[in-house]
């Protein structure tokens, strides 16, 4: 039984994006969009899109274009209800190694983000920072330095920093990289929780961890290269497949990773990986 839902406004649109690096084509013909998924029985159901692909397929290039950090050689990325071309700072980004300002405490890092969003201490920036720290179980780490945090704690602070900036759209680069199975589960719960904080919250996770991506996403984009009849890969990766996990009854279900259908789908993806 699938959950009822409907797709409404377009939140992020990637229009015919091509990207080259050092004269060679890295990405081509990327044209996809993310729509607001609305569930009649759930108040705030954000979107989680997993971008999967083998190493070297151009996931990072696409990530940087989506973040507005690099411009595509052709095409554009439009963000928000007004569909504005993306610029750095419009989309929240949580990088793989969770960079924070090492010269500021956790709270100092959050204050900077709150001020960027126009929230001064008096306007409630401080209270919101403390509230988010409590919500993400970091209340006792407010005065710690970033170098004193564990990888999981750094990840949470990096996410809070982006949320305080007022970012509705959040890009996460390899959020499961280097985490043990327990912390991978925590990261999945965290992503799901952030998505549920607001109807329009949209998280794009770029990863090669298939199980975790399937577990937490409602949509999957599979990146890869086409092959010529001779078997040689065609230059430039594209999104070769989009999977709607809601229709497959694999989204929003607690404990989905323990079901047979989950395992079957993960195996299907693994097999597909071999051909990309």
């Amino acid at each position: 039984m699938t959950y009822p839902y409907e797709l409404r406004d377009t939140l992020i649109k990637i229009e015919d994006v091509h990207a080259s690096r050092g004269g060679s084509l890295v990405l081509r013909d990327i044209a996809v969009e993310i729509k607001n998924v609305v569930r009649p029985d759930v108040a705030d159901q954000g979107q989680v899109v997993g971008v999967l692909g083998p190493s070297g397929v151009g996931k990072t290039t696409l990530f940087r274009i989506l973040a507005g950090l690099d411009a595509p050689s052709r095409g554009r990325v439009l963000v928000g209800e007004a569909q504005i071309p993306v610029r750095a700072g419009m989309v929240g980004v949580v990088f793989q190694h969770y960079p924070l300002f090492e010269h500021r405490t956790v709270l100092g890092n959050l204050r900077v983000a709150a001020r960027r969003a126009g929230l001064s201490e008096r306007d409630g920036g401080e209270a919101r920072a403390h509230g988010l720290l409590e919500r993400f179980k970091l209340g006792d780490r407010a005065h710690a330095w970033p170098s004193e945090l564990s990888g999981g704690q750094r990840q949470r602070v990096a996410i809070i920093q982006q949320l305080l900036c007022g970012h509705t759209y959040l890009l996460m680069d390899e959020p499961f990289s280097g985490l043990d199975p327990i912390n991978k589960d925590h990261a999945c719960e965290l992503i799901a929780e952030v998505a549920r904080m607001d109807e329009r919250n949209t998280i794009i996770i770029v990863t090669h961890d298939i199980r975790e991506a399937v577990k937490v996403s409602d949509t999957l984009w599979l990146m890869g290269r086409d092959r010529a009849p001779s078997g040689e890969p065609v230059p430039g990766s594209r999104i070769v497949e989009t999977y709607n996990l809601i229709d497959r009854d694999l989204a929003w279900r607690p404990g989905i990773e323990r079901t047979a259908s989950f395992d079957v789908f993960v195996r299907e993806l693994c097999d597909r990986f071999q051909t990309l």
């Binding site: 973040a67 950090l69 750095a88 700072g89 419009m90 989309v91 929240g92 980004v93 990088f95 190694h97 960079p99 924070l100 300002f101 900077v112 983000a113 960027r116 969003a117 920093q161 982006q162 900036c165």
Partner: peptide, 14 residues
């Protein structure tokens, strides 16, 4: 200085 630090600051809208 690593590029990531600059990018991180830029993504905060600085």
């Amino acid at each position: 200085l690593p590029k990531e630090r600059f990018d991180h600051a830029r993504t905060l809208g600085m």
